[in-house]
Structure formats: C-alpha cells, structure tokens
C-alpha cells in the first residue's frame, strides 16, 4: 500500500536527513578519523541541548498554530536574572526554579496578549523580543553578570571531559523530550493543542477553552525557554544580556525540519529533536572541515528550505 509507505516516509523523513548529514561528514579525509567517535557525539549532544529544550516548547506553540519569536531574548533575560540571583547568594536549585518561573511568566504574558487581545502571535512575540532583550540589558546594567563558582556551571560539562558520562543537561533534555512527547500524544491537554492548531473554530465549537489553552501553551513553553536560559548560563558561566540573538530562528528551524507545519496541527517531539540534532551535526561537522562561519550559515539556510520542500514532496499530491 502506497499509503503505508508514505506514512513510513513521513515519519522517518527527518531521521533519514540526520543519517545523511552524518554520512556527509563521515566520508571526507579531514574528518573521517574523529567525526564518528563517541566523544564527538558527546559534544554534538551537549551542543544541541539548548536548542533541543527550546524546540520542545516551540513544538507545542507551533502545533497550536502560533509562533514565538521572543525565545532568544527570553533565554538572555532568564540567564541574566539567574546570574544575578546566584550573585546574591541563591543556591543552584532556587535559581533554576526562578529562571524557569520567569520564562513561564514571559510566556504567560505572550499567551495572554495573543489570546486575550486576539492579536497575531508573530506581532506579540516580536514585541516581546524587544521588551525581554531590553529588560535583560537593563537588569545587567549593559554588561556581563559575573559570579563566583556555582554548581550550575557543571550542568553542561562533566567532571572528566574526556570520559564517557554525558553531562546532566543532556539527560535533562532527554527526559523532558519523553515527557513532552507523552503529553502531546496521550493527554487531553496535548490533543487539544493539536485541535487548536488544526481548526480553532472547531475546537471552540466543541467547548474547548481555546483562550485558556493558548495561554497555557505559551506559559508552559516559556518554562522550557527559561530552562534553556539557565543552561545557556551554565555553558557561559556568566550572565550575558547579549547572548542568544536569533536563537529562536534555530529553534523554529529545528521544529520545521522535524516535520511540523507552520500552519499548526502537525508536529512531533521526535522530529523536532532530530531537527535540532541535524543542525548541531551540521555546525560541528562544518567546524571540523574548517569551513568558515558564513559557509555554515549558508548551508543551514539551504537545509531548512530543502527539508520543507522534501517534506511537501513526500506528502505527495495533497497540497
């Protein structure tokens, strides 16, 4: 049955893409020796954590038919805020919770404005992009926020960098991915997100509280973005209000490469994670090939367009 084949292709598409980019960098003489090693993949996984966790939140938002452009700014703001708290003597756990809560609060504002004011999410979050970035710079007094050592610093590295253990951040991303996937597939809340993005009018007619649902989606996604902000802090070991500019575009690209539709109603956690990995592999491989930065950017741009084109092609005759 061609339908079955197509369904397999539709599910496996991003995965095939990931295999392809890995194969691409495994072949050349410059990278052959190192690229396919466990140690290199440990680096790739670690490098993809921030985008991956962001992509979990973004998957929910895009499936619901919305978009969030304020992620990079939210990451900077939550990172700066956590750095300031640590500077003031807060422990790692309370500072993390504070970053997640702040991210959630920003998402709540976004969602309330989108659903309550009936404004396009593109506009609201474009505004929030500026608001959050400005607030981060204001809080940080336009400079980096330094603090003495904190356990937070260890979450994106391992005690023995050449050892086999993966850093805590990777395990965290994996656990959250499983949880989000179950949430989207098996719970009423998750299925209602799909209904909202697939046909909002239908969802409302069926008595789904669409306004509350949209706000909750943004708030929950915001928590993920806050966590990304904290992990960004962990990676830099300081709070930088100018970090993660344009991060939202990487995250959106990961979700789209993973097979979600910008029109809402479709998207999977697994696809989005694979999308994030494809981008991390491309970055890592390009660096090892010694390609300049601008070349990496061009390649990633081409990959986004090719992925969406192939996706539509794969889905066949239906427009």
């Amino acid at each position: 049955m061609t339908g079955t084949l197509r369904r397999i292709a539709a599910k496996g598409g991003p995965f095939i893409g990931l295999i392809l980019v890995i194969a691409l960098f495994s072949a050349p003489a410059e990278t052959r020796g190192y690229f396919l090693t466990y140690h290199n993949f440990k680096i790739i996984f670690t490098q993809s954590v921030i985008v991956s966790i962001g992509a979990l939140g973004m998957t929910m938002i895009i499936v619901s038919g919305a978009i969030d452009l304020s992620v990079g700014s939210t990451v900077a703001l939550t990172g700066v805020a956590a750095a300031l708290l640590i500077q003031h003597g807060w422990g790692a756990a309370p500072a993390t919770l504070a970053a997640v809560a702040l991210g959630g609060a920003i998402g709540l504002l976004n969602g309330a404005a989108v659903a309550g004011l009936r404004m396009p999410s593109f506009i609201i979050t474009l505004g929030m992009l500026g608001i959050a970035r400005g607030t981060a710079k204001w809080l940080a007094d336009n400079q980096t926020v330094n603090y003495d050592a904190s356990p937070v610093n260890g979450w994106m590295t391992t005690a023995n960098p050449s050892g086999h253990a993966l850093p805590a951040g990777v395990w965290l991303a994996l656990a959250l991915a499983v949880a989000t996937s179950v949430l989207l597939k098996k719970t009423v809340f998750g299925r209602h997100i799909f209904a909202l993005g697939s046909n909002e009018a239908a969802a409302r007619l069926c008595g789904i509280p669409t306004v509350r649902l949209q706000v909750m989606v943004f708030a929950l996604a915001g928590c993920f973005f806050g966590l990304s902000g904290l992990l960004q802090l962990s990676r830099l070991r300081l709070g930088d209000p100018t970090v993660a500019v344009g991060l939202e575009l990487d995250i959106i690209a990961a979700v789209i490469i993973g097979g979600a539709s910008l029109n809402g109603g479709s998207g999977t956690v697994l696809g989005s994670i694979i999308g994030a990995l494809i981008m991390a592999v491309l970055r890592n491989g390009s660096q090892q090939m010694g390609w300049p930065n601008y070349f990496q950017e061009i390649i990633i741009g081409v990959v986004i367009i090719a992925a969406v084109f192939l996706d539509r092609f794969r889905r066949g005759g239906r427009a």
């Binding site: 299925r191 799909f194 209904a195 993005g197 697939s198 046909n199 009018a201 239908a202 969802a203 007619l205 109603g265 479709s266």
Partner: peptide
C-alpha cells in the same frame, strides 16, 4: 468544522 490533522476518533 473538523480538525483535519486529528484522527476520526479524536474529532
């Protein structure tokens, strides 16, 4: 007024 992406059962 159906959600085209959801299954028949879900709709």
């Amino acid at each position: 007024t159906l959600a085209p992406h959801l299954s028949v059962r879900e709709n």
